[in-house]
């Protein structure tokens, strides 16, 4: 998109800003002067919105599941919504959208994070791994195998997040015993209640000692 501005280049920033301020000040000045605060504020937001959508998509480069992506996104798009709605990577789930359930857990540069509380643009140049990126062809990741074997899920909706979190939990060294696993997996809610089976799956993968 030609109107993209690069958030890394301050000159573009000031350009964008001056356009924004100019538009805001010129066209709304009279309205603001005669309307009560709340209305003015709404009008202002509305205008800001229109300007924003005109030229505030920003370029974004990331590597997702080993594939380099060159994208153009609105800054307000979360990593979760980018994956699900724009890239059709729907394996990463939206369970609450507020960082309270863990269903949206992905790996960023190998660390588990919540994609719902993360703006996509904050991941410029980073490596994202989602549930779709775990298996190598037909060969499932050991954690995926263990979840099937121990029946670590029912409806399956929290499962991608549980699996991404479980792999990181072992990598971090927080899976030394069952109590540790329970504590450090507590950010992943399973409403079906398959927790004990998930703990069994993680314990088995941990004990097998494979590099994850």
């Amino acid at each position: 998109m030609g109107d993209n501005h690069n958030p890394d280049q301050p000159e573009n920033e000031s350009f964008a800003e001056s356009r924004r301020n100019f538009l805001k000040n010129s066209s709304l000045l009279t309205a603001i002067a005669v309307t009560p605060g709340v209305v003015a504020k709404a009008a202002e937001n509305d205008l800001g919105e229109k300007i924003a959508s005109a030229f505030e998509k920003v370029p974004l480069k990331m590597e997702i599941n080993g594939v380099k992506q060159q994208l153009s996104v609105e800054p307000r798009v979360t990593l979760l919504d980018l994956l699900r709605e724009q890239l059709n990577l729907t394996g990463t789930k939206k369970g609450c959208d507020y960082g309270q359930c863990g269903a949206c857990t992905v790996h960023v540069n190998g660390q588990r994070v919540l994609s719902c509380l993360s703006l996509a643009v904050m991941h410029e140049g980073q490596k994202i791994t989602t549930i779709e990126g775990l298996a190598k062809g037909d060969q499932l990741h050991p954690m995926q195998e263990a979840f099937i074997k121990h029946d670590g899920f029912q409806c399956g909706y929290c499962t991608p997040g549980q699996i991404m979190s479980a792999i990181a939990c072992i990598r971090e060294g927080h899976a030394e015993n069952e109590a540790d696993i329970r504590e450090f997996m507590s950010g992943n809610i399973c409403r079906c209640g398959a927790y004990p089976n998930i703990v069994d799956a993680i314990t088995e993968v941990k004990n097998n000692g494979q590099k994850l």
Binding site: L134, I148, T159
Partner: peptide
């Protein structure tokens, strides 16, 4: 083992909001 287990652990299972 759960017959749809593979779809669920790979993220391939499609739920109602996931039809593009």
């Amino acid at each position: 083992d759960r017959v749809d287990g593979r779809l669920k652990v790979t993220g391939a299972a499609r739920y109602s909001a996931e039809y593009q």
